[in-house]
């Protein structure tokens, strides 16, 4: 019964993967029948001569880092609050989960208009409350574009983090919390001594999701800035797309793909290893 699935996996995952490694050693332009073998030239170019590639790697690290540092604490805090005030918590939960359900292209377009320097609701709001000096072209300024994108990313994914935390917390037997209360632990102590340790596994899972997510992140940045202004918001995938399809250099694009594959593979293996050794202790 699993044969059809196997065929699909081979056809759409393993075959393209092999093809990607193969292509990464060539210079080609899609349409010319002659592919020029260049060995590792694409890779040396990437790491020695391509400032934007290096910048895009940094941006991936920043994206993964800020996602973990912001989404996880806020998600856990919101989950705790929602579970404590169950009556309105449900509604609140639905509202913060909503962005995750909307198509990311739609979200990107909505936020692009919200960030618009002239018509955007953010600047209009800032000017209306007398904070006009803070108003700026959010996506049109190399100092704020990346931060603006991070804002949108967090808006989308905090709902997911919260939901996963709620699911985990709900699976903890209530008797543990009851006995804690009988032992006289305050709310904060309860959170620190009981809730947090029980969430450790989840937090590692969320970090893996954040890191893997950062490496495959594409649509939001492509719609909002196309990697601009001045290539300051590229991540590795957008730069791959640009190289392969805009500059018509599929070989170079494939080489970028190879590095994405290797980086994410190594990092995730590492994280899984750390988790295993910690969780089994």
């Amino acid at each position: 019964m699993s044969l059809p699935a196997l065929v699909f996996v081979i056809l759409f995952i393993y075959y393209p993967l092999v093809q990607m490694f193969y292509l990464s050693a060539f210079r080609w332009n899609f349409v010319n029948p002659n592919m020029v073998f260049v060995g590792l030239e694409n890779f040396t170019r990437m790491f020695l001569n391509d400032q934007v590639y290096l910048r895009s790697l940094l941006n991936v690290v920043l994206l993964a880092g800020q996602s973990s540092a912001i989404q996880i604490p806020i998600g856990v805090a919101l989950a705790t609050i929602i579970l404590r005030y169950r009556r309105i918590g449900g509604l609140f939960w639905a509202i913060i989960f909503l962005p995750y359900v909307i198509s990311s292209v739609a979200v990107s377009l909505i936020w692009t208009w919200m960030y618009n320097p002239y018509f955007g609701s953010i600047n209009v709001f800032l000017r209306a409350v007398g904070l006009g000096f803070l108003a700026r072209p959010w996506l049109g300024d190399i100092n704020t574009a990346l931060i603006a994108i991070f804002g949108t990313v967090n808006w989308i994914y905090i709902g997911l983090t919260t939901t996963m935390t709620i699911a985990t917390l709900k699976s903890i037997p209530p008797s543990i919390f009851e006995s804690a209360r009988i032992d006289g632990l305050s709310g904060f102590q309860e959170f620190r001594k009981i809730t947090l340790p029980l969430l450790k596994e989840l937090i590692v899972v969320l970090m893996i999701i954040d890191i893997a997510g950062a490496f495959k992140f594409f649509d939001l940045i492509w719609v909002m800035t196309q990697g601009g202004p001045s290539d300051s918001t590229h991540v590795t995938t957008t730069w791959l797309y640009r190289a392969a399809f805009r500059s018509s250099e599929p070989g170079y694009g494939a080489a970028i793909g190879v590095t994405i594959f290797i980086f994410s593979f190594v990092i995730v293996q590492l994280l899984i290893k750390i988790t295993r050794s910690r969780l089994t202790r």
Binding site: T112, N116, P117, Y118, F119, R136, P137, W138, L139, G140, D141, I142, A145, T225, G228, P229, S230
Partner: peptide, 20 residues
Amino acid sequence: QEGFIGASYDEAQNLFFTGK
């Protein structure tokens, strides 16, 4: 216009068509 390096064709069109 302010922030023009991040503005799309549509945003520029909007500024011109609406008389800004």
